[in-house]
């Protein structure tokens, strides 16, 4: 994932979780970020969608919060969507 995209997503995380010092690491799970509950998860999804102009499917939104998923897998999903969008454009 490009540094620029990572920085953009990190800024969205900081805004949604109201934590300016938050630094994303791939191995972080939802339990490692304080306040990542079901409601905040959707707020995060909506904020990422708005910022990057992408769309998440229902099954993808649920999957990102299931056990075994982490920030790394979420970032990879975002990267694939941004790449697909740029490919279409």
């Amino acid at each position: 994932m490009s540094e620029e995209l990572r920085a953009q997503v990190q800024q969205v995380f900081r805004d949604v979780f109201d934590d300016p010092s938050l630094v994303l690491r791939d191995e972080m799970a939802s339990e490692d970020i304080e306040g990542w509950d079901s409601l905040t998860h959707i707020n995060l999804i909506v904020a990422v969608e708005r910022k990057l102009g992408i769309k998440f499917a229902t099954a993808e939104i649920g999957r990102t919060k299931e056990p075994g998923q982490n920030v790394g897998s979420f970032l990879r999903m975002i990267e694939a969507k941004v790449a697909a969008k740029q490919g279409v454009a």
Partner: peptide
């Protein structure tokens, strides 16, 4: 998880997109 994905998250997302100010209350 089915209810979370196909009832709650779908409706809450629609709510958060339209009324972000009231989204928590709506949630």
């Amino acid at each position: 998880w089915w209810i979370r994905d196909y009832v709650f998250m779908t409706s809450y997302k629609a709510c958060a997109e339209r009324f972000s100010k009231w989204s928590r209350l709506c949630g």
